[in-house]
Amino acid sequence: MKADKKADMKDKGILARRDLFRAAGLGVGALGAVAITAGAGAEPAQAAAPEGTSQGYRETDHVRTVYELSRF
C-alpha cells in the first residue's frame, strides 16, 4: 500500500512536471528542426535529425571536442 501511494505521488510529480514544461514553451518540438547531439556515447547528430529535412546538424571539430569533454 505504502509503495502504491509512493508510486502514485511520483506519477503525479512527473505529470505536474510535464505540464510545467509544456506550459513554459518546452513541449515536444520546442526547438523545431534543431537537434544537437552532445555527450559521450551519443549517436551521430544525423540520426537525431528529423525525417525529410536536409538541415541535420553536422558534426564539427568543436562538437567532437565536447564529446571528448564528456568522456570518462
Binding site: L26, G27, L31, I36
Partner: peptide, 16 residues
Amino acid sequence: PPEEEQRAQVYALLAR
C-alpha cells in the same frame, strides 16, 4: 520522457 529530452536539447544547444 519527451519533456526531459527537450530539456537536454536546450542544454545541448546552449552548449553548442
